[in-house]
Computed example of a mutant assay.
Amino acid sequence: MEVLGRLLALLVVLLLGAGLRMSGVLDERRTDRLNAAAYYVALPALIFVSTYDQAIGSLLSVELAVGVTVVLFSTAGLAWLVHRHRSSPARRSVAIVQSYHSNLGYLGLPLVAATFGGDVTAIASVVLGFVTLMQLPLTVVLLSTINGASANIGVELRGLATNPVLLSLLIGLGVGSLGVTVPSGAATGVDVLGALALPLALLCVGASLQLETPTIDFEATGTVVALKICCMPVLAWAVFSALAVDAATLTATVVMLGTPTAVSTFVFASSLGGDEEFASLNVFVTTLASVATLFVLITLVG
């Protein structure tokens, strides 16, 4: 019941963000400030405090790298097979991308940190960094290729080099691997900032959700939901069980890869010729439906 209560609280904060946006309290300027606080301060703090006392060898294993790669590209391949016959390239590209592109930073890692112990959170931080390096370029390539839109892959890759999430992960793993001692006061302060990651991120996601859409393609949206929050975590469970990883790795990967579609996919779709209304609807529906599926996943793996 504690897990259910936590997820229901997550839903309340998420809907609060949407309500504040609709009422005008969270306008574009204030939402941007909240996003900046979450993305540049709270989330990096959470990643650092989860990894600064861990050696990289204890977190990043061959099994983890192989398993995450297999799950990501297998889901993307399955999504391409399922959605390849959709007549509109704009809708087809969005459906494929949103079937695998996970909300790891704003929902996955904060949720893991609030629900599980430090060992699971540390591995989830590595999953966040590793998957980001693959799913972001893959999403840009697929959207630009299918829609015939121009995209500067070099710019996206350079953006990854300055990504605060990845930088904080590298710094945390570096400190842990070198055995550098972090003063207790500093660690406590960073821990407090990291605790703000989940509520800030949920408000930002809620404020970013677009609820208005004139037409709903129930079959297409239902397929995206099924692939993203049902098929992908089940595939992760099967792959990592076959790899015989430890319980912390299994828990971290299954929950992280079971998160809903990332809000960033709507941004990419808007700039690379995708169906914006369809993308917005899918983000909203997968996020709401994930409250139920994440409860099941957390109950089973926890």
Rank of each mutant, 00 (worst) to 15 (best):
D119N: 13
D119R: 15
D119C: 07
V120R: 02
V120H: 05
T121K: 07
A122Q: 03
A122E: 04
I123P: 08
A124F: 04
A124M: 05
S125F: 02
V127Q: 07
L128P: 11
G129A: 03
F130V: 09
F130L: 15
V131A: 01
L133P: 04
M134E: 11
P137C: 13
L138Y: 08
L138W: 11
T139M: 12
V140G: 06
L142Y: 03
L142E: 00
L143N: 08
L143R: 09
S144T: 08
T145N: 10
N147R: 06
A149P: 03
N152H: 10
I153E: 10
V155W: 09
E156K: 03
E156S: 11
R158G: 08
L160K: 15
T162F: 08
N163L: 09
P164E: 00
P164T: 02
V165P: 00
V165R: 07
L166N: 13
L167K: 11
L169A: 05
L170W: 01
I171L: 12
L173T: 00
V175S: 05
V175I: 11
G176M: 06
S177I: 00
L178Q: 06
G179Y: 04
V180W: 13
T181W: 09
T181L: 11
V182E: 02
S184E: 11
G185W: 02
A186V: 15
A186H: 03
V190M: 09
V190L: 15
V190K: 00
V192I: 08
L193H: 05
G194D: 05
L196A: 14
A197E: 07
L198D: 03
P199S: 10
P199Y: 12
L200G: 04
L203K: 00
C204K: 10
A207C: 07
L209G: 06
L209A: 10
Q210I: 08
Q210A: 13
Q210E: 15
E212V: 13
T213R: 15
P214H: 10
P214N: 12
P214W: 10
I216L: 12
D217K: 08
D217Q: 10
E219M: 10
E219L: 15
A220C: 12
T221L: 15
T221W: 07
G222A: 07
T223L: 15
T223D: 12
V224Y: 01
V224F: 02
A226H: 04
L227T: 13
K228L: 05
K228T: 04
K228Q: 11
C230A: 15
M232R: 05
P233H: 02
L235Y: 07
L235I: 14
A236N: 09
W237E: 06
A238V: 15
A238S: 13
V239L: 06
S241G: 14
S241M: 12
A242E: 05
A242R: 04
L243E: 01
L243G: 05
L243K: 12
A244S: 14
A244P: 08
A244D: 15
V245Q: 09
V245E: 06
V245H: 11
V245F: 09
A247I: 12
L250G: 14
A252T: 02
V254W: 00
V255S: 04
V255E: 05
M256Q: 14
L257N: 12
L257C: 11
P260M: 00
V263F: 14
V263G: 08
